[in-house]
C-alpha cells in the first residue's frame, strides 16, 4: 500500500469502503493497475479521468459485479473480495446507478423502487410501496409513481434509478457517470438530487465528467490515469491547482472542449 494513498482522509474512524491495491484486466487490457482508495462515512468522492481510465471498472469491482484479479476491497472492515463472502448480501448494502438508468421496463416506477425492499429485505408489499412512494414524493416524482419507466424523460428515469438504489439505505452509493446519457437541460435535476443526497449524509463514490459539479459537491477528487490513481486530494485543489502534469493536461483539454 502506498503511504500517500490515504493522506487525504479526514477522520480516524474506519473507512466505509477501503480499496487496497486492486488489479483488474480484461484479456490483454490492464484496466486497474494497483488502485488504493479509502472512502469515509458521509464522504463524497469523485473519480475523474478520461474514458477507459478505469473509473467504471473500479465501481463495478466495489459492487462485486466484476471479480478483481488481485488486491482487496473492504466494506466496513469486512473483506468483500473474500471468496467465502455472500455476494448478494454485499450487493444489498451497496447501491449503484448506471449511465443507462437500467430501470426495469415491465414494472411501474414505484415497483422499481420497492423491489429490493420487498424481495431482498422481505418488507411487506404495502410497506415497501409506501416507502417508495414517499421517496418519490420527496424528489418530486410522486405523480410518476404509477407510470412505466418508458413514459418518463431521461432525467426523471435517472432520478428514479437513483432513488431505487438508495431505497434500501445502502452503506455507500456508487454513481457511474449518471448524467452522461442525459440531455444537457436534464443534467441539472439529477445533479440537484445528488447534492440533496449529500446533504442527508449519503456516502457517495461517483465517476463523473461534470467537473464543476465535482468541485461543488465532492469532498475529494481522485484522478485516474491508465489504471492508477495519479493524484487525489480536496476537490478544489485537484481541479484548480493539480500537482501532476497529466492531471493539468487532462483538465486543460477538458475545459477547452466544454
Amino acid at each position: 500500500m502506498t503511504p500517500q494513498a490515504n493522506t487525504s482522509r479526514r477522520g480516524s474512524e474506519p473507512a466505509v469502503v477501503r480499496v487496497e491495491n486492486v488489479y483488474k484486466s480484461f484479456g490483454d487490457t490492464d484496466v486497474l493497475r494497483g488502485i488504493t482508495l479509502a472512502i469515509d462515512h458521509h464522504e463524497v468522492v469523485a473519480l475523474i479521468g478520461k474514458s477507459g481510465s478505469g473509473k467504471s471498472t473500479l465501481l463495478r469491482c466495489i459492487n462485486l459485479l466484476e471479480q478483481v484479479d488481485d488486491g482487496q476491497i473492504f466494506l466496513d472492515d469486512k473483506e468483500l473480495t473474500d471468496p467465502l463472502v455472500k455476494q448478494d448480501d454485499v450487493r444489498s448494502h451497496i447501491g449503484i446507478v448506471f449511465q443507462q438508468y437500467n430501470l426495469f421496463p415491465h414494472m411501474t416506477v414505484v415497483d422499481n423502487v420497492a423491489l429490493a425492499n420487498r424481495h431482498v429485505f422481505k418488507k411487506g408489499k404495502h410497506e415497501a410501496r409506501d416507502e417508495a412512494r414517499a421517496l418519490l414524493e420527496r424528489i418530486g416524482l410522486g405523480d410518476k409513481a404509477n407510470e412505466y419507466p418508458d413514459r418518463l424523460s431521461g432525467g426523471q428515469q435517472q432520478r428514479a434509478a437513483i432513488v431505487r438504489a438508495i431505497a434500501t439505505n445502502p452503506r455507500v452509493l456508487l454513481l457511474d457517470e449518471v448524467t452522461s446519457a442525459l440531455d444537457p437541460e436534464l443534467v441539472g435535476e439529477v445533479l440537484d438530487l445528488i447534492r440533496e443526497l449529500k446533504q442527508t449524509g449519503v456516502t457517495i463514490v461517483m465517476a463523473t465528467h461534470e467537473m464543476n459539479f465535482a468541485r461543488d459537491v465532492a469532498d475529494r477528487v481522485a484522478f485516474l490515469d491508465d489504471g492508477v490513481i495519479l493524484e487525489q486530494g480536496p476537490a478544489k485543489q485537484v481541479l484548480t491547482t493539480p500537482r501532476e502534469a497529466r492531471t493539468r493536461e487532462y483538465l486543460k483539454r477538458f475545459n477547452a472542449a466544454h
Binding site: N21, Y23, S25, D28, D30, R33, D69, D70, G71, Q72, T81, D82, P83, L84, D226
Partner: peptide, 24 residues
C-alpha cells in the same frame, strides 16, 4: 504496460484466493 504485467507477481492473498476457488 504489458511489461509491468509480466513483472507483477500476484499477491499472497490473490494466490490464496485462486487456490481456494480451485479447491471449491
Amino acid at each position: 504496460m504489458n511489461n509491468d504485467r509480466e513483472a507483477r507477481r500476484p499477491s499472497a492473498t490473490e494466490l490464496d484466493r485462486r487456490a481456494f476457488r480451485r479447491r471449491q
